[in-house]
Write a protein that binds this DNA or RNA. Sequence first.
DNA 1: CGCTCGGTTGATGAATTTCAACAGTAGTGG
DNA 2: CCACTACTGTTGAAATTCATCAACCGAGCG
Lengths: 253, 253
Amino acid sequence: MIMERFLRNNRGHALTQEERKALESAVSEIKTLAPRKTIVRAREILHQSTFLMEGTMSRYIDDTNGVRQLVAIHFAGDFVDLHAYPLGILDHDVATTTEATVAIIPHAALGKIIRDLPQIAPKLWFATLIDAAIHRAWLFRLGRLDAVGRVAHFLSETNARLMSAGLSNGHRYALGLRQTDLAEICGLTTVHVNRVMRKLREDGLCEFRSSWVDIPEPARLAARGQFDPHYLYFVDERGGSQRTCPWGREPAD
Amino acid sequence: MIMERFLRNNRGHALTQEERKALESAVSEIKTLAPRKTIVRAREILHQSTFLMEGTMSRYIDDTNGVRQLVAIHFAGDFVDLHAYPLGILDHDVATTTEATVAIIPHAALGKIIRDLPQIAPKLWFATLIDAAIHRAWLFRLGRLDAVGRVAHFLSETNARLMSAGLSNGHRYALGLRQTDLAEICGLTTVHVNRVMRKLREDGLCEFRSSWVDIPEPARLAARGQFDPHYLYFVDERGGSQRTCPWGREPAD
DNA sequence: CGCTCGGTTGATGAATTTCAACAGTAGTGG
DNA sequence: CCACTACTGTTGAAATTCATCAACCGAGCG
């Protein structure tokens, strides 16, 4: 049950029962963390990674004045700092946003799983590459969208991710973020985010009240934020050639 | 010789002779590409990756009006789209910036190498995670720095990367970019980049003339851009506990 | 009740974009 | 050799977006 959602909708990279069981049995500890607690600091040497079972977590970089830029946000089913396994040290901090339930997986146990079930390695690699793809979408957002577009893009992306996790019905989802958090995600000030939210509300694109996001017409919001979910690499209904990741197979291809 | 620079300065993840030879013998083709040619489009199914031996390449996402945001820039010694191997499809385009010499490595051959030399897998994984770390630094740059800071940060980062590749002496390097490219990297307009460059010149922080970047005092430029190279994961002189990536070893740690 | 926190609003100013024009350089062909 | 073109860089002026500063509101809570 712990990692049910992990890689669930990713083309060709879903875990087998066996792989999921192996990961779950590698969990050394499950715990619930208070909201707004930093659990990993940049430059610390790490020997474990954190899988998020419930709640919301963030990864961020602070500037020299303490002004914060979020570089990622994570929801239930995300392997928050899996990249700490190959990297050993992170270049950013990791914190809870809401209260969060996490499963801790020691890197030593991860190593054992990969040795026992080598075909899991490309899937874990894949999972970290999805994070990188999301980073790129965020770069696009910050570099090329205006304030309204950035928020629209973020809320659309979040809708898509939460739908995939079974946490949004496509029109409405719970989001435990404050306007300050949106500002730190979108590279804006809190005051300006407030005005942007009003604009989105006035335009009928999105309501965000007491931790619920309502999106009457997701397509319109997506258009305003130039959002296209292809970079999330979810299985799409159209099927298409779902290339699976290679190694462990013969060099056919 | 082909991949001499690859992972050269990365802590604990340098390739062994054997691994490098294996990768180099997997090269199916070496070719020189004209400047400003797009060689990979988002959503194409890929069966090979591109290693950059000489020149400069970029990865980018265009908005619906064709305004471009670069999400990465690559120099000699970078494995430009290694992530295409686990992903199969990219979420962005890839292009040459200058004329470039590249080595093509079929994914089938990569699979074979990983099966033959499993300890290379975490190193390749690591290489793609460095790209992700750079994405995060770019997010910080776009989200939290002003125009002068963004350019200062980028030029400092590039100095650090090129030093590691042996292509900068720490004060001066060749950079085949136009002001338009800087704009697409830093999320600015070309006109404003022009003014920023003048400002950097006036402040004695940086000269950028006819493809050469001169940085009299790298520390001052870095300070202006809040640049700290730790996210590049280069070996540092201070040594420190150079954690190497695990699997293939016993679960000791 | 008084406090804190997150959200809201207004007024002002700074940073950046936009639009428009022009300069310098290199290449190209008559 | 010169005219012409193309490309990159440069500058000015006006418009716009967003940040900053400051105040206030409302809900929840001790």
